[in-house]
Amino acid sequence: MKINLKINNQDKIVEIKPHEMLLEVLRKTGCLSVKHGCDTGSCGACTVLLDGKPVLSCSYLAAKADGHSITTVEGIQDKVDQIGKYLVDEGSVQCGFCVPGLVLTVIGMEKELSNPSEQEVNHYLSGNLCRCTGYVSHIRAIMKYLEDKK
């Protein structure tokens, strides 16, 4: 079947199978920043923004995304530059596999929460697992980023 997706601001008609998940479809269209980390919707590595809200593309049917707008880090490189700088400065991009998904969730959070506390940030981002950093540098970076943005 064919669906319409606006991927990173470009309108696309994409051929999909009815049971295909958004993750596979996005990777096929070249959005390789979207990562596959688990089978159970538990890791957050596949996070994308659907109409600006973070969703797990591994458990989101591509068919359901028909007519919607999808953002991956490929589409917002300048914004990623800003947040990424803080993450890189704090040494919180270790293997980096979790980072694109994390950055998108942070962007989703910025829209939803104004002035979040450290605890609220950790709660909002808790679905994005990272095995390398122990998360400590993530929170340092993100709090600094939020602070400087004010």
Partner: peptide, 21 residues
Amino acid sequence: KSIPKIDGMGLAKGKPAFTDD
């Protein structure tokens, strides 16, 4: 000296870098 990790920004920006990519 704490210089930024040289591949840090590329990875944050989701450049194709891993085996599956």
